[in-house]
Write a protein that binds this DNA or RNA. Structure first.
Lengths: 164, 164
DNA sequence: GCCGGTAAGTATCATATTGCAACTCAACCT
DNA sequence: AGGTTGAGTTGCAATATGATACTTACCGGC
């Protein structure tokens, strides 16, 4: 990726949506709680006992998730002690992020593929590695992409319309 | 995604590589520092001034990144006060995660596409949305994937061996 | 309609992490 | 020499996290 001028970096820093995302999922435990939710967990006690997280922290995180629209909190009609936390569409939309992070950990940290594995329901085969791809689906490596500003065609390429 | 038995969830929790990944990039500031590095920043003062992070924390994060193999620290020969921090291959491998997170923030938090945008150097067009895909490249949505254990086919497949 | 137990939290206090500002210290610049 | 820059430390205040204990509402059996 080509270097940018320093002013552009500063600008990027201030208006990028990464900080916004991190405000929601950047705290300790956030991804781990989400992972449990992705796997089907829904109740306070389940999150608590499997993760070993302190109860007050868990309560705080769940409340924040609900507040930020990542999870929905709803009482269970059958048993009025129980409450269900379930992912909203916004929450499910974090799947690629979570999978990418896990795959990175497998490749570069643990070195092993852990169970269970995420597979395609259609054929039971494991999902692909999550990658950054061009508009037409080519997998892009480190040298194949660059940061571009607005409609500036930089090296003569087509005007970059909003998208990344 | 289909639900898993509770035992499987617990097992997953303990051996999944997500915690391993989070140990490296799960702290506050980690992704923001990485973002700056992806954009081409290399020096302590640049990270510090653009991010506004406390100097001691920055020093700590950079040292940890180096320790974990995400960045490489090397003195600049021309000016022996200066030090360069640059991403290793392992660090660059976090690109999909970072891009996925940023895209999520754009879609669900800020609602706008921020500058600069990541584009394909070949044609200058913005990269695709990062998605989870099947082995043959179909984009998989929430209902199109499930967690499966070992080489077990569909439901009731081979006995799920624990461990690994 | 009491009793032991479960579910989802709060409250309290100890420990860790972060943030801020000032300081060091070698190296460069003039 | 004297001032400045780059890359950090140091010391202390402000937050966040963690470990228990406690509370409240509810269930199911008797």
């Amino acid at each position: 990726m080509a270097k940018l001028a320093r002013e552009q970096l500063v600008e990027f820093s201030s208006e990028c949506s990464l900080p916004a995302a991190l405000e929601v999922v950047g705290e300790r435990w956030a991804f781990l709680i989400l992972r449990s939710a992705f796997l089907g967990m829904r109740h306070f006690e389940d999150f608590q006992s499997t993760l070993g997280i302190a109860r007050n922290i868990l309560a705080d995180r769940l409340a924040r998730f609900v507040e930020r629209g990542i999870m929905e909190r709803r009482p269970v009609p059958d048993d009025r002690r129980r409450v269900e936390y379930r992912l909203t569409e916004k929450g499910w939309a974090l799947t690629p992020t979570l999978v990418a992070l896990r795959q990175w950990g497998e490749r570069w940290e643990t070195g092993t593929t852990a169970q269970p594995v995420l597979v395609d329901v259609a054929d039971g085969l494991p999902v692909r590695e999550v990658t950054v791809q061009s508009h037409d689906g080519r997998v892009l490596g480190k040298g194949d992409m660059r940061w571009a500003v607005e409609g500036s065609a930089e090296d003569g390429g087509a005007p970059a319309k909003a998208g990344a």
